[in-house]
Nucleic acid binder design. Structure first.
Length: 415
DNA sequence: AGACAGTATT
């Protein structure tokens, strides 16, 4: 798309001199559209016509590169910026720190944060939130809470993002009571939780088996006029299904269009799984077809759910045909799909086929967990393939998949 | 003119 450069030239011809702001705005727009090459072209053109990029220009490019996972390019730009004598500001640092956090490079992110302090820039909520989020993602909740306490010690009033991040972090660590305290404190301080926060907490309540609390929160959302999103419905439908409240889940699902929302693949998958696990495989298949009829493209999770549902209902052939369709769609099987299929095949006594899939997954660098390995081993023993079982057991021990201390020949109710 | 937060499958 060379239109942007033409556009700039046209502006010039009309005597409307594009300035640094014009160029920076265009660069940022192309970055946000994911058209990096185009953004870079404008960046180079800007330099060519003698305009100097400033902190805004660089920040847009650094942020876009971070979000695209090109950390090295982002760091290169930061260095270039420094060499050009343009100082980074809090927004530049936040973009870079967040990029490093998203990439799991916490030591580098901490280094960036130190640089902020050393430069004399006072950190604001956004950069604290980015850092807190990084720690949570790295499963270092203790560090996240230290920052949280530090912020509150400084007398900052946490904003919605920070409250939301902390609540999400505590939920992800199954620290529901603490999460609840922060949630109450938030409301007490006059902040109104948004749909992100309500959805996070409701989902956590459902996952912890606290159905009543989850439903109370749902009511609170309705009372406070909080917007429902597709994700809210997804968490709600999944939670209801897992509690066996299938009809309730269906009702919410069917009422989504009433408020202008259409179920996406994730919502269908939650409901399909719910039907499978509540003994309604036929209805699950109908839902899957309904999804196809709507022109939606099932993802790995959707296919895996249908495969697993069929296996658990004794339909091995149908499960294998779904697997075939999945592969024909050009999808690689993942840990979930392999686990389900290997379990199913061994359950039906097809241990050779299960072994083929096991080798295939290991070949791709996807490692089965110990439970799956033991499940397959026990089936070998049970079917009387003792030599093969022993061989497989040795192989699994050598690959570090099992510890090898159990007596797998002992029949087990689960196999 | 630029930065930070949530969901479904074994």
């Amino acid at each position: 798309m060379p239109e942007a450069l033409n556009f700039l030239r046209e502006m010039n011809n009309k005597g409307l001199k594009p300035n640094v702001i014009t160029y920076s705005t265009l660069i940022d727009a192309f970055c946000k559209e994911g058209m990096m090459q185009e953004a870079v072209k404008i960046f180079m053109d800007m330099k060519r016509v003698g305009l100097s990029p400033n902190e805004f220009t660089y920040t847009s490019l650094i942020d876009a590169n971070c979000k695209a996972g090109n950390l090295s390019e982002a760091l290169k730009l930061k260095k270039e910026m420094f060499q050009e004598g343009i100082s980074s500001n809090i927004v530049t640092y936040t973009a870079l720190l967040d990029g490093l956090c998203q990439d799991g490079r916490m030591e580098d992110a901490e280094e960036v944060f130190r640089e902020v302090l050393e430069t004399g820039i006072s950190p604001n909520q956004q950069i604290f939130t980015a850092l807190v989020h990084g720690y949570i993602k790295a499963k270092r909740m203790e560090n996240a809470m230290e920052i949280w306490k530090e912020i509150k010690g400084k007398g900052f009033k946490p904003d919605l993002s920070l409250y939301g991040t902390i609540i999400w972090g505590l939920c992800s660590q199954n620290k529901l009571e603490e999460s609840e305290l922060v949630f109450s404190e938030m409301k007490g301080c006059g902040s109104t939780p948004n749909h992100f926060i309500y959805t996070t907490l409701m989902d956590a309540y459902f996952k912890a088996g606290k159905t009543k609390e989850a439903l109370n929160l749902l009511q609170e959302m309705l009372d406070n006029g909080i917007e429902f999103t597709v994700v809210t419905y997804c968490a709600l439908i999944d939670g209801l299904c897992k509690k066996g409240l299938l009809q309730e889940a269906i009702n919410y699902f069917r009422r989504m269009p009433d408020i202008g929302l259409e179920p996406n693949v994730a919502v269908f998958t939650a409901l399909i799984d719910g039907h499978c696990k509540n003994n309604c495989i036929e209805a699950a298949k109908e839902l899957f077809n309904e999804m196809l009829d709507k022109g939606m493209i099932p993802d790995k999770a959707a296919y895996t759910t249908l495969i697993d549902g069929n296996l658990k209902h004794g339909n091995l052939q149908e499960a294998l045909s779904v697997e075939k369709r999945m592969r024909e769609m050009g999808m690689e099987l993942d840990l979930y799909a392999y686990t389900s299929l290997i379990w199913g095949l061994s359950h039906f006594g097809q241990v050779q086929q299960a072994k083929i899939l096991l080798d295939e997954m290991i070949g791709k660098g996807i490692l089965p967990d110990e439970i799956l390995c033991i499940c397959l081993l026990r089936k070998y023993y049970k079917l009387g393939y003792l030599d093969e079982a022993f061989e497989l057991q040795t192989e699994m021990v050598n690959k570090g998949l099992i510890t090898g201390t159990c007596d797998y020949a002992v029949p087990n109710a689960r196999t």
